[in-house]
Amino acid sequence: MLTRISAKTRLVLAAFALPAAGMAVMAAPASAQSETMSAQQRAEALVTALNGSGGERSRYARDNFLSDGSYRMRVQQFNQLARRTGQLTLLNVAEADNGMVMQVRDEDGRTKAISVVMDTRRPDRILGIGMRGL
């Protein structure tokens, strides 16, 4: 049955299922985090890019997003997310098996969860991002 679901649909489902799963997951110890960059560092870089200019977001996307056929769609989604949220402050980060869940506060004081799904074949590349209010 899952083989009939498109990759895009699986990505959307994963992006919205990750916050719920991430709420039960505590941050992983430093030894379990990526050797090159911790979840905290990844989250800080992502928030900095979201708070930055369009050029900074494009550079972040080029360096961190998986560059496949839907790359442009992900960059557009990333830019829309930045426009909708305004300035963000990182509150908390929790690692999950296939990514991380970040808790952020927007400039209006609302708390939101940003789910980041990483590519399993290239764990340094972002496969998708989703956001929801808490």
Rank of each mutant, 00 (worst) to 15 (best):
V25W: 09
D63N: 13
A49D: 02
R10K: 15
A113M: 11
I114M: 00
S58L: 10
E107G: 06
R122Y: 07
L127P: 01
R121E: 06
D119T: 06
S67T: 08
A14Y: 07
R132P: 03
L50A: 07
A21Y: 13
D119V: 08
L81M: 15
A43K: 03
P19R: 02
R84P: 01
V25E: 13
A82V: 04
M26A: 15
A28M: 12
T36L: 09
V75P: 01
G109T: 06
T48G: 14
R105M: 14
R59A: 08
E44V: 13
L18R: 12
Y60V: 02
R72L: 06
V93Y: 07
Q80D: 12
P29E: 05
F78P: 01
E35H: 11
N92S: 12
M26E: 14
V116T: 02
T120L: 05
A14Q: 14
T36C: 03
I126E: 00
R42S: 10
G133V: 14
M118I: 00
G54E: 07
R42M: 12
N92D: 15
E107D: 10
S67E: 05
T85C: 12
G69E: 07
A24L: 15
T120F: 03
A43P: 05
R10H: 15
Q80C: 03
D63C: 03
T48N: 13
E35C: 07
D108Q: 15
L46N: 02
I5P: 03
G69D: 07
A14N: 13
A15R: 10
G109M: 05
N64E: 08
L46M: 15
I126Q: 00
N79S: 10
R42G: 01
S58H: 09
Q103M: 11
M23P: 01
L127H: 08
L46Y: 04
R84D: 11
L18Y: 04
L91P: 02
V116E: 00
G133C: 05
R74Q: 11
D63F: 04
R59K: 12
V75T: 09
N92M: 08
T89R: 15
Y60P: 02
L11M: 11
L88W: 09
R57S: 02
I114A: 00
Q80M: 08
M26D: 15
R121F: 06
L90W: 11
V25G: 04
Q76C: 05
L11S: 12
Q80G: 10
R74W: 04
E44T: 15
L11H: 04
A20N: 08
E35Q: 13
G52W: 01
A15V: 11
I5F: 09
A94R: 15
L127F: 10
S58W: 03
S67V: 11
A27Q: 14
S115L: 01
E35T: 15
R57D: 00
D106A: 07
L90T: 00
Q33Y: 06
N51S: 08
A94P: 01
K8E: 13
N79T: 03
G109A: 05
A39Y: 14
G52H: 04
F78I: 08
Q103C: 03
R42P: 03
V12D: 08
G69S: 11
L18E: 14
G128M: 08
P123Y: 04
M23V: 09
V117N: 01
Q103A: 10
D106E: 03
G86A: 05
L90S: 07
